[in-house]
Amino acid sequence: MKNTKLQGENEKSSSDVIWQAIPIGLAFLALFFIVQKSGILNLGLGGPATPATSFIVGLVASVSSCLAVVGGLVLSLSAQVAEDDKDNRKPFYLFHMGRLGGFAFLGGLLGALGGAIGVSFTLGAVLGIVASLVMIILGLNLVGVLNKRAVKLPAGIFDYFKKVEHQVFAPLIIGVGTFFLPCGFTQSMQVAALSSGSFVSGFLIMLSFALGTLPVLLVLSFGSVTFAQSKHAPLFFKSVGVVVIGLGSFALLAGLVGLGLIDPLFNI
């Protein structure tokens, strides 16, 4: 009897939390779209790409619409890892190392090979759609929709994530894989690396770009851990869930437009 009462209270507080999380999440989404729309991010950066300008472009990119894909993915994965095991930081270090190392090495390759390899638009768009689907699924899980309704399909996916979280390889690969995620800034930098003419200059351009995006991504991933250990953890996870579902849906729709599968619905 006492047990059921306790359970009832838990359920009540968890449904209260979701009602707080929805406006918080929506407020962050609104802020994100308003910042995009305002044109604040359209800085004029002239001249050839140097490591210094690449770093600045990286800083801008990390709060731009690319945040919807790369940042959303980092946030959803981090929150998921932190929710499952709040003391497990290894995947974050591995992810960021993979991202920095992957950008530097692949940038170097672009510089060395020149025009021999092109970064495919279609590959990027397909990966972007996969990333946005992962974000939507993780977001629904964080909000708690999937847990309660016992949706069959994702169960296997979550078991897979739980296994993956403790591996070395997967976070590294995801970090390297962010090189191919669709992001206009990344593509501009890839072209700059491509035309830079040498391994070292391509390496430096892409490494500085990735370093520029690092602060925001570090905040997203290690911020998740910090919140996961605080008493606001349930509210944090549910708010992140709302944000991630929003960003994921935006990235998904944009990806389908990019592939020419649907007509543009919006123009931020």
Binding site: L45, S65, F121, Q187, S188, G260
Partner: peptide, 25 residues
């Protein structure tokens, strides 16, 4: 383009099969 690094630099015009990442300027 003028100092353009954002997504609008990577242009796709599907009906004529054009896709290219434009230089910043």
């Amino acid at each position: 383009t003028s100092g353009t690094y954002d997504c609008s630099a990577s242009l796709v015009v599907r009906s004529i099969g054009f896709q290219k990442v434009l230089a910043p300027t």
